[in-house]
Amino acid sequence: MTDVQAAGSSDNITQEVKTVLNDAKDFNALHGLNSEWTLWFDNPSKRTSTSNWTANLKEIVTLKAVEDFWGVYNNVAIASDLPNGSNYHLFRKGVRPMWEDAANARGGKWGYQFQRSIGEKVNEHWLHTLLACIGESFDSSPDVCGAVFSNRKSCFRIAIWTRNADDQEACENIGRHFKSVLGVSHPLEYFAHSDSSKTGNSVAYTV
């Protein structure tokens, strides 16, 4: 994260710096993120065809600071309450959460499925994933494009999308840290986006 900055401060104005920790309502200091991130939402159940999928992909907000993140996280629906079939996406600003985006086209994803019996506990796993992204805690953080939460009838799914499926070292570094962030012991599998639309797509890496 970048240094604390007073919102709207000026060289000509001396302003008392108030953080969200000592003034939750009238704070004027922001803890900037190293990168800006955009939260998206889509509900596939409302699609009428594959061709109009982008019409159902909604850009919610772009986050520039830690305070932005918590303000949004605490005021949107929790992940486990999303309608069946819908998704949250948190991606770097300028990267659309779709395979066709230039940043994703040569990449892939790590994913893990949680049984629905986990209930609201899955929200902790999603929060930890989000914090790992905006906190740039992955060893190969520049290769992380974004994270996706999917609510399905049979499971909850959390995934991390990466930029380059051919970079095995970076992919496996990200996968190992993602596994640690989720706190799971079962193997995680990585699939290249280029294989995902094929029948019988194969696992590229496992950690």
Rank of each mutant, 00 (worst) to 15 (best):
R176Q: 07
N12E: 12
E136V: 00
H193A: 08
A55E: 15
I78F: 11
W53Q: 14
G8M: 05
G175N: 06
R163K: 15
A192W: 08
T14I: 07
D195S: 11
G108S: 09
E67M: 04
A159F: 02
A79H: 01
L63G: 06
W40V: 02
S150R: 02
L30P: 11
R176S: 02
V66E: 13
I158W: 03
F191D: 05
G200Q: 06
E67C: 07
R96K: 13
E120F: 01
R92M: 01
S117H: 09
N123Q: 09
C171L: 12
K18F: 13
N12T: 15
N87G: 00
T2A: 14
V207N: 02
N34T: 13
F91N: 06
R47E: 04
S137W: 01
E172F: 11
C133K: 00
G85L: 01
V203M: 05
K64W: 00
D167N: 15
F149W: 04
S154T: 15
E189D: 10
S51E: 12
T54R: 12
R152M: 09
R163Y: 05
N74W: 10
V72W: 14
F191V: 15
Q5G: 08
S49M: 01
G108Y: 06
C145A: 05
K58N: 10
F149V: 04
K109G: 13
A159S: 13
V20L: 11
A204R: 15
S86D: 00
D68H: 09
N164D: 15
G71L: 10
S180A: 15
G85R: 12
W53I: 09
A29N: 13
E124A: 12
E189I: 05
N84K: 13
M98S: 04
T19G: 14
G175A: 11
E36C: 11
A204P: 05
S185V: 06
T14N: 14
P142E: 11
F69Q: 06
G32C: 06
Q15R: 14
R106F: 08
I118D: 04
Y88I: 00
L39F: 11
L90V: 03
V122T: 03
A79F: 15
G146P: 03
A7K: 14
H31I: 12
V207R: 04
E136T: 00
E136N: 00
S154I: 12
S45N: 00
A170Q: 13
S51G: 06
F178I: 03
S45A: 07
V66Q: 11
G94A: 03
H186R: 14
M1V: 13
T50M: 10
I160C: 07
W37Q: 01
T38V: 00
S197E: 07
A29Q: 08
K25E: 15
